[in-house]
Design a protein around this nucleic acid. Structure first.
Lengths: 116, 116
DNA sequence: CAGCTAATTAACTGATGCGTTAAATATGCG
DNA sequence: CGCATATTTAACGCATCAGTTAATTAGCTG
């Protein structure tokens, strides 16, 4: 039924409108109307994008009178990055060298036992 | 019609089965049957997951007789990470310090002009 | 070529995503 | 209270997604 956390995060990030909303929020909190302004979609549509972002933990919200302000929460981005780090050695040359180095270290420490 | 590259990447990553396939491929190339083995879904379903991953650039495929082998391509992960790096200062304490440092540097270099 | 294995495509189903407009709710204010 | 503003919920349409089974294509091999 309910998707796992990483799936929620990635599918929240899969929509360009939601990524744009996050970009806007990186400059500071904003209300729903302010967030909707640059887009050519209805307010309810924006409201639901915000709910998706909230469910993924990417934003938190607070009420101030009749305004609901959204605030960026980057922790899920850290999680997603952490997941990708597992694959970093496949694209990052310096990481590949580090990886090779670590393998060598491990190999060296195992060697004595192997030899005897 | 066609989604932008980042959206393709993130939505490909939004599915747990596809992430598991990538994890498997990080250990080496594999055929469709090998990739399907751990999952409780039909071969055509796996076949389509592979097509999604291929469209996102996350895997490449080659044919060897009647077998089609899939290979991890990490470049899109680099792109996705790069996109997230824009937000790194919101979660990474050392990055926050670096950010503050850079602001100070910039401020200092601007100061003389301001003072005169 | 016939038959085997590997993989994809076709056709269908049910669930989900993203948009709409209209109605409902929440809050502040005269 | 009654109205204005901000936002959400309801109800709907349409496209896409993720799965199924059945049929098809691709390439070996006897």
């Amino acid at each position: 039924m309910s998707a796992d956390r990483l799936s929620l995060i990635f599918s929240a990030l899969a929509d360009p409108t939601r990524r744009a909303i996050l970009a806007r929020l990186s400059e500071g909190e904003a209300t729903v109307n302010e967030l909707a302004e640059p887009f050519d979609i209805s307010l309810p549509a924006v409201s639901r994008h915000l709910k998706v972002l909230e469910n993924a933990g990417l934003i938190s919200r607070s009420r101030n009178a009749q305004w609901r302000s959204s605030k960026l929460e980057a922790e899920p981005l850290r999680e997603a990055t952490e997941w990708m780090d597992r694959y970093r050695r496949f694209w990052d040359a310096s990481f590949i060298r580090l990886d090779a180095h670590l393998r060598k270290i491990q190999h060296d420490s195992e060697d004595p036992g192997v030899k005897q």
